[in-house]
Design a binder for these strands. Structure first.
Length: 887
DNA sequence: CCCTTCACG
DNA sequence: ACGTACGTGAAGGGA
């Protein structure tokens, strides 16, 4: 028995869009409507087993109904761009699944469906119509059932004429009359005012049709009679508009709609592009041709040539070393300073040689180790920076990073950079790499599998790296990030690894003493707080604290979070006048933070043997191109408040008599802004080396320098910050605690003076809209898929990001350049000084006594010369016995 | 594992 | 009408 399913494409796409949470694939493509549509489609195919399938779409904007009634579908909200951009994808999906789909000029999907069901009625063929639109019920017949979506998209309810009768007491044809009377706000069909579903049903049960109701209008009473009389024409027209046209000139024959099942060979590439992982298996199982694991899933079923090297056989690999293309080291653990190394793979053109780490460490593998240590031998792999560190702590030297697919993935798209290798492989259509979680298990279940499985996994990784690499090299050229990659990021990864291995010395004794001081303060504060609260509770729990402050003590609620009362510092500061406890809590919070994060946290990270901490700079995390720092984070050591700043005293040189020297860029982001915006006023301010916040205050307030007081300067400073962040009046008003109006006034005054900055802000947003991304001076790129979103919040966020990223990102480019150049100079000048830390605009060194004079000139000189801008770059240097003194 | 808070640039 | 400043990481609480 043949069975046709016709899907109302626009209706189901809309349902799917609103039923699914927002969903994007890693390249930022919105996919939720496609996903919802697909799940519905698969379910229908599985459950209904259609022999014929069609998805009908609406065509264009104007249909014959507009000729009858101009306002047809008027006043309807514009389709959000997140949805409209998914229609081409839907068509791609259908084509890939071998499902016929079309639209017809001047008609809506309804009319195509109406025509098909009429033909089915005549030829006695079975049809199921799937839609979210009740109007379709008018098409029901013995041959035709109408399936309407209920909740979401996958739940549908099928109606035949009997069920329609049961639910509405109407025949399918009368559905048209129903709409004639009640109208339809979503299509802007007027109907009769005052008549809703209840009244309309009552009238139709009595009179049968619109025409009969109108003919019998004399029997009606009151307001309803009046409405019916004055809007008789409207009722007739509404009925006509609601009538589905069933005589569309279709070119397609019944046989054209034949559905032969989904062929995975065609469909899976599309599913991969969409990143519909959960659906891939489902589709694979549905392939009628496939069955016995037709491996279309993998790119040419990629067999792995794997050699597990064993003791006694290493010389075989030695002979192949000159042919090695990819070097991979299997590292387990997040922190590469204390990770386990399981094994390594040397991959030639066609073979992965797996060497267990134990074997690599043995006498027999000396040649392998010298190969790894030889900087002249180029290494290509995944996350070589981490590998370098992990090997280092296991006593194996690594040199010669030449291509790193994780670093390259980061440059190609920094927002999905923490890409695991299996994710990256999937992205490039090589689904042969399992995830580490799958192979090892996660959390407490972690377990290294048997050698056969392990070597297969690791061997496949190396193979995937080889494939990915080829594609990335071409991509890097395409997007002109070749230079950024080879001349900056890759050399930098080595610089970072050296800094990290070096570490910075911590005076553990002093840190413990500081901890004792903090402990004493905390004890006093806790006692006070319990007494003022009249009870003991966990001050660290925002929930419990909120209950004390707002329920027990009755303080006014200033702000709520999604889980309850907000108790952050901003709220507490406003509450200070109401109760003495608040000040104590604020103080407690600040000291408790220092104690847990900076005293206890830091102590946990100090290496017993050396008394040093070794941070791990992550080069592939920040969307702007900045570094991040972990285990411990040394980029957020306190400085703003004196109590916390003392923490810096425990960071000391690792050798007696040496000093800590720190140099930081002065206003690097505003200087970058001056350069890229070419704003005359801003450039002038920096060329004359003026105090930029004071200068901003002078210009914004229109006063001479001597009239700028501390408060004016503070406000100007906030405006400058706001500018860099992609200013909004709301954000500035929050920061300065002023009204939004006043904030807007400041911004307007700023832009009136710094017109080049205004132009930059306008232009960069336009550029982002046009290209879909923004770039830094060194061509680092960040995609902003939400720049054209219809959602105000998402779009605004993307706009601010468009303004901020070129500034923050260029500043990051500059200090990275400075780091690479600085390391070169230390080498060429044969200095013993060492670069230890980077804190976004600051570099920290340890310097022997006899190099102090040189370094305090050299460091700022190299930093200032890192990149030539149209304004001078300036770095200020200072030094002392510890990081605190170097201020 | 997510939320809240807070440290830095 | 909408309701946020840009970029990070760590700790503690609580489901």
């Amino acid at each position: 028995m043949e069975k046709l399913i016709v899907i109302d494409g626009n209706s189901i796409a809309n349902r799917a869009f609103y039923a699914m949470p927002p969903l994007t694939n890693s390249s930022g493509l919105h996919t939720n409507a496609v996903f919802g549509f697909t799940t519905m489609l698969l379910k229908l195919i599985e459950e209904e087993k259609p022999t014929h399938l069609l998805v009908a779409f609406d065509a264009g904007k104007v249909t014959f109904r507009h000729a009858e009634y101009e306002q047809y579908k008027g006043g309807r909200a514009k389709t959000p761009s997140e949805l409209s951009e998914q229609f081409p994808l839907l068509r791609e999906l259908l084509t890939a699944c071998g499902i016929s789909h079309f639209e017809l000029n001047g008609y809506e999907a309804d009319d195509i469906i109406g025509t098909l069901t009429r033909i089915a009625d005549e030829q006695k063929k079975q049809v199921m119509v799937v839609s979210g639109d009740k109007d379709m019920l008018q098409l029901a017949s013995d041959q035709v059932t109408i399936a309407l979506t209920r909740k979401g998209v996958t739940e549908i309810e099928a109606y035949d004429p009997a069920q329609i009768q049961e639910k509405y007491g109407l025949s399918p044809e009368q559905i048209i009359d129903l709409k004639g009377l009640m109208g339809d706000t979503s299509d802007n069909i007027p109907g009769v005012p005052g008549v809703g579903e209840k009244t309309a049903l009552k009238l139709l049960h009595q009179y049968g049709t619109v025409e009969n109701v109108l003919a019998s209008v004399g029997e009606l009473k009151g307001k309803m009679k009046e409405n019916m009389e004055t809007h008789a024409d409207s009722a007739r027209m509404s009925k006509e508009l609601a009538t589905i046209f069933r005589e569309v000139p279709l070119e397609q024959s019944w046989d054209d709609l034949k559905f032969e099942g989904i062929s995975t060979g065609q469909a899976l590439p599309f599913f991969r592009k969409m990143e519909f992982k959960s659906l891939i298996d489902r589709v694979a199982a549905m392939d009628p041709s496939g069955g016995a694991g037709s491996e279309v899933d993998m790119e040419p079923a990629a067999p792995l040539n794997l050699v597990v090297v064993e003791a006694g056989n290493v010389s075989e690999l030695d002979a192949k070393l000159s042919e090695v293309e990819v070097f991979h080291v299997e590292v387990v653990g997040e922190n590469p300073h204390q990770s386990d190394v399981i094994g390594v793979v040397f991959r030639t053109f066609d073979t992965s040689y797996y060497v267990p780490f134990e074997l690599l460490k043995s006498e027999e593998a000396a040649a392998l180790r010298s190969w790894i240590a030889d900087g002249e031998v180029p290494k290509r792999g995944y996350d070589l920076h981490k590998i370098d560190l992990a090997l280092h702590w296991k006593g194996v030297a690594f040199e010669g990073a030449a291509f790193d697919v994780s670093l390259s993935a980061y440059l190609l798209d920094p927002t999905d950079s923490n890409m695991s290798l299996d994710g990256l492989a999937a992205k490039y259509g090589l689904s042969s790499v399992k995830s580490d979680d799958e192979v090892y298990g996660k959390g407490a279940k972690f377990k290294v599998p048997a050698l056969s499985m392990l070597s297969e996994h690791v061997g496949r990784k190396a193979m995937a790296i080889q494939e990915i690499m080829k594609k990335q090299q071409a991509e890097l050229e395409d997007v002109e990030m070749h230079q950024l990659y080879y001349e900056l990021e890759l050399p930098l990864s080595k610089v970072l690894a050296d800094m990290e291995k070096q570490g910075i010395a911590v005076n553990v004794g002093d840190l413990r003493d500081l901890g004792k001081e903090f402990e004493a303060i905390i004890n006093t504060l806790v006692t006070n707080i319990y007494q003022l609260a009249g009870t003991e509770f966990n001050i660290n729990s925002p929930k419990q604290l909120g209950e004390i402050l707002f329920d027990k003590l009755g303080l006014p609620v200033m702000k709520k979070t999604k889980t309850g009362y907000s108790t952050d510092a901003e709220v507490l500061e406003k509450l200070e006048p109401y109760h003495d406890i608040v000040k104590q809590i604020l103080h407690y919070r600040s000291i408790a933070k220092l104690q847990s994060t900076y005293v206890e946290g830091l102590l946990k990270e100090v290496r017993q043997e050396t008394g040093k901490v070794h941070t791990y700079y992550r080069q592939t995390i920040a969307a702007t191109g900045r570094l991040s720092s972990q285990f411990p984070n040394l980029q957020n050591i306190p400085i703003r408040l004196e109590e916390g700043r003392k923490i810096r005293k425990v960071f000391v040189p690792s050798e007696p008599g040496w000093s800590i020297l720190a140099a930081d860029y002065s206003q690097i982001e505003l200087r970058v802004l001056a350069h890229i915006s070419q704003d005359e006023k801003l450039i002038e301010a920096f060329v004359h080396n003026m105090d930029i916040h004071t200068k901003t205050a002078m210009d914004v307030f229109g006063v001479p320098a001597e009239a700028v007081d501390a408060n004016m300067r503070r406000q100007a400073k906030a405006v400058n910050f706001g500018i860099v962040y992609g200013i909004s009046d709301y954000g500035l008003s929050q920061n300065l605690n002023i009204t939004r109006k006043d904030a807007a006034k400041f911004i307007e005054q700023y832009f009136a003076v710094f017109q080049g900055v205004r132009k930059y802000m306008d232009d960069i947003v336009k550029e982002a809209r046009k290209n879909g991304y923004v770039t830094t001076l060194l061509e680092r790129r960040r995609y902003l898929p939400e720049i054209n979103a219809s959602n105000f919040n998402l779009r605004s966020f993307a706009e601010r990001t468009a303004m901020n990223t070129p500034i923050q990102g260029t500043a990051a480019d500059i200090i990275k350049l400075a780091m690479v150049k600085m390391e070169e100079r230390l080498q060429t000048e044969q200095l013993k000084s060492r670069m230890l830390l980077q804190v976004h605009d600051e570099l920290v060194f340890e310097v022997p006594e006899d190099e102090l004079e040189i370094m305090k000139e050299l460091v700022p000189e190299v930093m200032a010369a890192a990149l030539k801008l149209d304004v001078p770059l300036q770095a200020d240097v200072s030094y002392g016995a510890n990081w605190y003194e170097a201020k």
